[in-house]
Amino acid sequence: MRIPCPHCGPRTHEEFTYYGDATVRRPSSSSPDAVAAFYDYVYTRDNPFGLHRELWFHQGGCHEWLVVERDTRNHAIKGAVPARDVFKAGESK
């Protein structure tokens, strides 16, 4: 697999560390249902059969966390953007 790093160009995925689902959002720790919300955030996953937005860290390159959009059925990668752009925009899934 080759991940199109926005900083480094297409690089083999061995250079990256996989983290997982990029669509979950850390809940507020002060809300009354915080424990339930954190349970969902930490433990449950859509685990889609198809497009998956996921976090990869370019450990062997720019040290950027990327949100990669990839199809779990065939590993086809649609694109990769810096995670900070996605999360700064406050974009939800």
Binding site: F57, E64, W65, A83, R84, F87
Partner: peptide, 17 residues
């Protein structure tokens, strides 16, 4: 290595501000 990656994840994905 794990702590370093974790810090980056926290910074870039949780609190990019």
């Amino acid at each position: 290595v794990q702590v370093y990656q974790h810090m980056h994840l926290c910074h870039q994905a949780l609190w990019p501000e």
